[in-house]
Computed example of a mutant assay.
Amino acid sequence: MTAYLTSIRAIILREALRFIHQRERFVAALVRPLVWLLVFAAGFRAALGLSIIPPYQTYITYETYIVPGLCGMILLFNGMQSSLSLVYDREMGSMKLLLTSPLPRGWLLFCKLLGSTAISILQVYAFLAIAAAFDIRMPGWGYVTVLPALIVAGLMLGALGLLLSSLIKQLENFAGVMNFVIFPMFFLSSALYPLWKMAESSELLHDICAVNPFTHAVELIRFALYVEWNGMALLWTVLAAGLFAAAALIGYDPERTRIGRRG
């Protein structure tokens, strides 16, 4: 048990130190959602009228609607940033040293996942504080009840990052992942517009958005910010997290890697 606790403390501390030494990463993580909140929202406010939909009890501004989606954006892009760092560590050899530890490989990957999720959550709360400074506030208790939702959503998106890092062999391929995985996952969700609005345009796009795991992560955060329960969103987010984590474990399986090299 001591070895397990030492490993999780060391890995999380390493992730925290890396984050502290990369201040531009923190700034970039906040600039992206703030641009959407303060610039794009002003233009979309008139075009995307919103009806009263759960968990909202009254009409809201478009800026208020997209806050949960932008929280999800921070978790998503930070998960992909963690994926990029894993690919870099593998190329530099430090990932190999980590995975040759006598501890179970699944535990080591979980520690990496937990560290990146903790950093993502800190960035989300920093964003929520800046949004509140611009008079875009959530219910008081929502800042507390959203924490479990952020943990679940962060673990799911971090597990997706782990899966992608097991598939990406070179840093140069990361740009393709951004174009064909991250951006479609973000835009084909309820982060920027409600699903009923998407249904007015295309039933097919609505169905794609409805099965997108990122949609359920965003809705889990949205309901939690308003101190409401969304069991279906929680279920699908947890199932997606388990699926991504299991696939990542298979991707990092040493026997599979050795067979692939022989082939």
Rank of each mutant, 00 (worst) to 15 (best):
M1S: 11
L5N: 07
R9M: 12
L17A: 14
I20Y: 08
Q22W: 02
R23I: 03
R25A: 15
R25I: 09
A29S: 14
L30S: 07
F40V: 12
A41I: 08
A41G: 07
F44T: 04
R45N: 14
A46E: 12
A47E: 13
A47G: 04
A47K: 09
L50K: 11
I53G: 05
P54V: 01
Q57M: 14
T58Q: 15
Y59N: 14
E63W: 06
Y65C: 05
Y65Q: 02
G72I: 10
I74D: 01
G79M: 05
M92D: 10
M92E: 11
S94T: 15
L98D: 09
P104N: 05
R105L: 12
L108Y: 02
K112A: 04
L113H: 06
G115R: 02
G115A: 03
V124W: 07
Y125C: 10
F127S: 00
F127I: 01
F127Y: 07
I130N: 01
A132I: 05
F134V: 10
F134L: 09
D135G: 12
I136Y: 10
I136N: 13
P139Q: 12
G140R: 13
G140C: 10
V144C: 15
P148Y: 10
I151A: 14
G154H: 04
G154K: 05
M156F: 06
G161A: 03
L164H: 00
K169W: 10
V177S: 11
L192R: 13
K197L: 14
M198A: 07
S201D: 02
S202I: 07
E203N: 10
L204R: 13
L205R: 12
H206M: 08
N212W: 04
F214N: 09
T215D: 15
I221W: 08
R222N: 04
L225R: 08
E228G: 07
N230V: 11
M232Y: 10
L234T: 00
L234P: 00
G242W: 11
F244K: 00
F244E: 00
A247K: 08
L249D: 00
I250T: 11
G251D: 06
G251A: 02
P254M: 08
T257A: 15
T257R: 15
G260V: 07
